[in-house]
Design a binder for these strands. Structure first.
Lengths: 154, 154
DNA sequence: TGGAAGTGCTACGTTGGTGTGGCAGTAAGG
DNA sequence: CCTTACTGCCACACCAACGTAGCACTTCCA
């Protein structure tokens, strides 16, 4: 709480005036991230846009959200069951999108959907956190292209 | 230290007899992992085997090591500079392998080496930790094939 | 049988983080 | 000018975890 207050440039007392407990503050952060993820889903039109377009828009939208809210999902799981349930629902929504991408021929159908989904998450996370100089549109270009085509020399 | 002792089935006092401090215990874990990573590098003959073969052997070897020593690199960086320096040297060695893979035409040469390397790490981590029912040889098959060919429908 | 080595149990001191209360100071508005 | 709202500062209580000391007990070996 000291570190958070310092980073925010205020006194610990002020933080405690806004958030009764440390858990309450964490919950607020979790919810803020979840709200922003929902926005990205809507903007990407995950359920109805053509999958190639939706994929790119999703990645372009989620990279800045990930950067701004680098939340530890394990911590959310332990500390805030409500937020975690919501996160799991968002995850299922993304799974359905991946399934749609397979059905529509964008993703391969010879690998488990769980694997496709996990790779999507990991490549996005890599672009978001390890290549912070990539602007979201460039990051999306690279993520989508690498994911679809691989890094092998063809 | 209580949790570690319980998990090991011994008293905290016993753990303190073996390791003077919690930091010392963590260092021992870090070193054990690094030792095992070195072994994998040797077994994979990273620097001299044909890159396709070395890649597969590397992934097959590193998956179980990753599973057995799920060490947080940020924590190692903060807590044990010696181990961290050694980890960075191992990382550079892997970078050189990726460069060799590009030179020998296995990996694409139109993406930064850092990106190729980051994807390798992430896909390996995914297989190791999120698909724990995959045996190392199967995990290696899937990791290498997905990395090289991507998940797009061709 | 006694000594050495090791373990488990318990109580304790220290440290750092969470959370709280109260007061002085500042700014804004009526 | 007074009131309200807010902030920063400081001291404090509590608690969890780290690390320690000492003792009883067990096992093994000479």
């Amino acid at each position: 709480m000291s570190t958070i207050a310092s980073a925010a440039g205020v006194d610990r007392r002020t933080v405690y005036r806004r958030f009764a407990t440390r858990e309450a503050l964490l919950s607020a952060v979790f919810m803020a991230k979840l709200d922003n993820v929902d926005l990205v889903f809507e903007q990407a039109r995950l359920d109805e846009a053509p999958v190639q377009v939706a994929l790119h828009r999703y990645v372009e939208g989620i990279v800045p959200v990930s950067r701004q809210w680098p939340v530890d999902m394990h911590r959310m799981m332990r500390g805030d069951p409500t937020a975690y349930a919501r996160a799991r629902e968002q995850s299922r929504r993304l799974d359905r999108f991946v399934e749609r991408a397979v059905d529509e021929g964008l993703f391969r159908d010879d690998l488990p959907v769980g694997w496709l989904r996990a790779l999507l998450d990991q490549v996005v996370s890599t672009a978001a956190h390890q290549f912070t100089d990539l602007a979201p549109p460039e990051a999306a270009d690279r993520v989508v292209e690498s994911l679809l085509n691989g890094i092998g020399s063809h």
